[in-house]
Design a protein around this nucleic acid. Structure first.
Lengths: 135, 135
DNA sequence: CTACGAGTTAAAGTTAACTTTAAGTCAAAA
DNA sequence: TTTTGACTTAAAGTTAACTTTAACTCGTAG
């Protein structure tokens, strides 16, 4: 089976550089893989983990948040309660972020329609309509 | 009128430190305000601009993207076409980001329900259901 | 008058997330 | 057998977005 991917393969699959993968290992986000002649050989589990890491990164998690996520999940405070707490918090954060993005989108769209010739004027309008937005 | 806010006031209003505001000025995101005895005095327009900056920051724009936004808007390539192009691009980016956040939210929720005791296993499930997600 | 608090500057320091570099190992091709 | 190309390491460098520091200037309270 394909338990023999070298670092450059993994890097290509995920659009990362090998150095990034070594870095993830170094900071404990990726477990140290087996070696052949001193070279890292990755198997499926590493790819799965990287996939999760990648998605979390894309949605704005920092690497230490991601590490928290992994560690919170693993050492098993009996049932993964710590994990549950953590992910609840992260979900709330995601929802906040989504709201912000939505607001910024509205803001940009509104500015496209406007004929102000200075952005500040535009800002004024937005701020005045802002309360309506929140409700 | 209140054309007399000093830097610490502005900082407090926006939850920033004075140094951050000076920094914004330095990199050209905030115009240099009038001075009294050498001290910066901010008026409404500065607050409006800062409000826009803040919101853009919150939704993940970098400071140089924000500067682009301001500059694209101002020097008026006749009708603000450059601005329009730019903000269209930014809106698309926002939409991508929103999708990613949504996916990560789904991922976290799914992991909460799961009884795997390693995150990697969980990842496996997610990856297999991933195609369904995209469609 | 002098001491205080809040402002000013330029320049150096900080953190995250990597990348780059320098120096070395190793297996396979020429 | 030498060269090549991909790997290895530790350590230094990079970029963004600020913060901190050091040295200085004000106006005002005592």
């Amino acid at each position: 089976m394909a338990n023999n991917l070298v670092i450059s393969d993994v890097a290509r699959v995920f659009g990362l550089r090998p150095s990034a993968i070594r870095y993830y290992e170094q900071i404990g986000i990726l477990p140290p893989p087996a070696r052949r002649n001193g070279q890292r050989r990755y198997e499926k589990s590493a790819l799965l983990r990287l996939a999760v890491v990648q998605r979390a990164r894309e949605s704005g998690f920092t690497l230490s948040e991601i590490r928290e996520l992994f560690f919170g999940f693993r050492p098993a405070m009996r049932p993964p309660q710590r994990w549950r707490k953590l992910s609840e918090r992260k979900i709330a954060e995601l929802q906040t972020r989504m709201k912000r993005l939505k607001m910024m989108e509205t803001l940009l769209k509104r500015m496209q329609d406007c004929r102000c010739d200075a952005l500040d004027e535009c800002g004024e309008k937005m701020l005045s309509r802002r309360s309506a937005e929140r409700a």
